Structures are given as C-alpha cells and as structure tokens.
Simulated assay, not measured.
Amino acid sequence: MIPGRYVLYVCLVLVGALLACGCASAPGEVVTGTVVHVDIEGGFYGIIGVDGTKYLPLNLDPAFAVDGMRVRFTYVPEDLATIQMWGAPITVTWIEEAAGEGAPESLSDGTWELASLRNATGTEIRVLAGTRITAEFGEDGSMAGSGGCNHYGTEYAAGGEGLSGDLSLGPVYATEMYCISPEGVMEQESIYLGMLSSVRTFRIEGGILRLSDGDGRILLIFLKV
C-alpha cells in the first residue's frame, strides 16, 4: 500500500470511528430564538427565531421550558403533522441559554413582531400564517410598523424604568391598501389597530414585549426580531 493511500485509509477509519461514537458535530446552523409558551391545545412551548420562524421542538429539555428565555440551538427537521398545528416540528440536537444576547433594553431597542393577540374573552389568537405585524418605537416618541397589509403610525408616551411602565398611544393613522390574501388579513389588521387604543402598560421580559390594558389584561404579545 503506497503512503498516500495509507493516509487516506487512516483518515477514513478515524472519521468512521467519530461517527460511530456520536462525536461528530450536529448538522445544521446555530439558530438564536426565544422560547415562548403557547396557550393552545393545552399549552406547550415553542421557539421563535430572530427572523420570525416558529419552531416546535419535540424534545425540549424542561430546563429550557421557560417563557421568554433566549436560546441558541441546532436541530433536525421532522416531516410529520402535530396536534398543535404551530410551527415547524424539529428535534433539538444541541441547545444553550443565550441570556443577554441581543436582549432588548427598552421599547425603542429594534423591531418587535406580533406573535399573538387576545380578544375580549382572553382567548389567544395567533397571527395568520403568511402575515407580519410589526411595531417600532422611536426615541422621538413615534411608533410605526406594518399591520399585516397597511403601514401605520402613531405617537406614544412611556413611563417607567426601561423594561416596564405606563404606555399610552395616540390616534392611529394608516395607509388604505386592501389585501385579499391570506384570507382574514384585513380583519386581523382591523382588530390589531383597534386594540392599540386600549394599551395602558408594557413589560419586557427576555425577548418578549407584552402590552396590557388598564386592568392588567394582556392584549398583545410581541417578540424582538
């Protein structure tokens, strides 16, 4: 056996040994996201990536089942249907807490994307697939974003110490486009914009922003993106 082939043979043996013992790196890129508790189908934990992608981990370690925890993880996608009908099913292959990584320090720290809203009875309503509702709070007291179809804006006044406090929003203006897809997008936008006038307080925990009314009922839940 010539030296070149011998070296190749040794390398193949070593790689095979690594794979056999499970020492090879887990496939897939590292994803950063926020763990969220979803109040449907009895309640479960999911992860929403910084790009808004929803992941449904089938094997989430209980130590990471903490609403608002910032995590970094790798995964393998699973091609199956789940009763939750939320997010993409995955098997987590590696995970760690990413506390403080990109954690917002105030309302004006970046863009917020709506994850869910709650109606008058307190029932959580998920944002329609294929739509994005966003909010950006400027340091000049302006608030703007997308309602899922139209762009909107208003003014706000916040009190407190950065991560929680009183919040009041002024009259909302919006463009007047009409979107037909996906079905229900205009109704969703109307509900969202209408709820803004009821907001009285805010609280930021991890990468989650919760806006509540004067009675402390959570109306809107956003994720930092």
Rank of each mutant, 00 (worst) to 15 (best):
M195V: 00
P104S: 11
S106A: 15
W94R: 14
M143S: 10
E78G: 00
A17I: 15
C23H: 09
G16C: 09
I218K: 12
A144W: 04
Q84D: 11
T53H: 10
L18W: 11
F64C: 07
G153L: 05
G165F: 05
G138C: 06
A63M: 03
E205Y: 08
P104T: 06
G16Q: 02
G162R: 08
E136C: 04
S181V: 10
L114P: 02
G49V: 00
G4V: 12
I95F: 05
G68F: 10
K224P: 00
R210E: 14
E205V: 15
I208W: 01
V38T: 06
S181Q: 14
K224V: 01
L211S: 07
V7F: 10
V36I: 12
G170C: 03
G216P: 11
T201R: 15
G194T: 07
T131R: 02
M85P: 00
G153D: 04
L12P: 00
T82D: 08
V127Q: 01
A88W: 10
G22P: 07
A65T: 12
E187D: 15
L12H: 01
F202H: 11
A99L: 12
E155K: 14
W112M: 05
T123H: 10
M195E: 12
F202T: 03
H37K: 13
D215R: 14
Y156M: 03
T93E: 03
I218W: 05
V30L: 11
L193H: 07
T123Q: 15
R200C: 01
H37G: 06
A81Q: 13
E155Y: 12
E105L: 11
I218P: 00
V15E: 01
P104D: 02
S198R: 15
D79W: 09
R203S: 15
G16E: 04
M69A: 15
C179E: 06
M186S: 06
G42T: 06
I208E: 03
D109N: 14
L107T: 09
L114E: 04
G148D: 02
V199P: 06
E29P: 01
P3K: 10
L19T: 09
E105Q: 15
E124P: 01
I221C: 11
M1I: 12
T175Y: 03
D79Q: 13
I48E: 08
T134W: 01
G22I: 14
M186E: 05
L18F: 14
I90K: 05
V38E: 07
P104Y: 04
T32P: 02
G49T: 05
